[in-house]
């Protein structure tokens, strides 16, 4: 498998759909996802507090910090899986507190999420899993097959399209999860330790895929504790690095 490139036709289709999606974003601020003075506490203890974050359209962010600092929690706040216990979280300009479960579901179609331990529907093939977001959105477009094939080629899983998810290696799972995350042409991709289970070569490949998406205008936020990965990215893309420490979010950059 050579160097992966987002195929031409799919790239144009993706960009077109992204442009088409844009006008529906009616935020008053500047970020597609905004956290304003947000706090989150589990039971008694406060995990995050006085935390503000703005993901501008087309920006590339890294989120780092020690294990258990709340990186995953922060990502969950960014896609509405958790609601802040204080402060305001806005997805595409909409206050999460005023969104019902259906609104959250709709916003997930504009936010692609890649987990460290990505989960699939184990009884469906990889191709069907990648196409799942379209199926649940009721969009079985005629051009979906081409689109899907190009996407599978982009992540280098063409030959594994008919396999079941449990048969995939760690790296293949991560790439399948990435393909699933972007099939709806989301405006934002959130990745939680996307390179946690793969070797250096594979993590570089995943990083390149994410950078390619970002060049097409997708907002990217990657949570990772892998400083080497961040250094590798900084040479290819203008990335901001945020660090969670002592429940707060700080800009980090000098030490990298």
């Amino acid at each position: 498998m050579g160097k992966a490139h987002f195929p031409g036709a799919a790239r144009i289709a993706y960009a077109a759909r992204l442009m088409h999606n844009r006008p529906s974003f009616s935020g008053d601020g500047t970020g597609v996802i905004e956290l304003d003075n947000v706090a989150y506490s589990y039971g008694g203890g406060e995990l995050l507090s006085e935390l503000s974050l703005q993901l501008a359209p087309g920006s590339f962010h890294f989120l780092t910090g020690p294990s258990g600092a709340g990186k995953t929690t922060l990502l969950k706040l960014c896609y509405g899986a958790l609601r802040p216990t204080a402060g305001v979280a806005r997805l595409f300009g909409q206050d999460v507190r005023q969104m019902d479960r259906d609104d959250i579901a709709m916003s997930r179609r504009r936010i692609g999420v890649v987990h460290q331990d990505c989960q699939f529907l184990d009884h469906l093939s990889v191709a069907e899993n990648v196409a799942l977001p379209m199926a649940v959105a009721g969009q079985a477009m005629p051009e979906q097959d081409d689109n899907l094939r190009e996407l599978m080629a982009w992540v280098g899983l063409t030959e594994r399209a008919g396999a079941l998810p449990p048969e995939l290696s760690g790296g293949e799972r991560q790439r399948a999860a990435l393909a699933r995350a972007v099939i709806m042409s989301p405006e934002v991709v959130l990745a939680d330790e996307p390179t946690g289970n793969v070797d250096w070569e594979m993590s570089q490949r995943l990083l390149r895929l994410l950078i390619e998406l970002n060049r097409m205008g997708v907002t990217v936020l990657i949570a990772t504790h892998d400083l080497q990965l961040i250094r590798a990215a900084k040479s290819q893309v203008q990335a901001r690095v945020l660090r969670i420490a002592n429940r707060r979010l700080n800009a980090a950059g000098v030490d990298l």
Binding site: D102, A105, M106, R108, V113, Q119, L132, P133, V136, A137
Partner: peptide, 16 residues
């Protein structure tokens, strides 16, 4: 539960 979590993650509504 895992199926439901995956479906929610990829944007399925409760009705679906």
């Amino acid at each position: 539960a895992q199926v439901i979590a995956v479906l929610r993650l990829v944007g399925a509504t409760d009705a679906y």
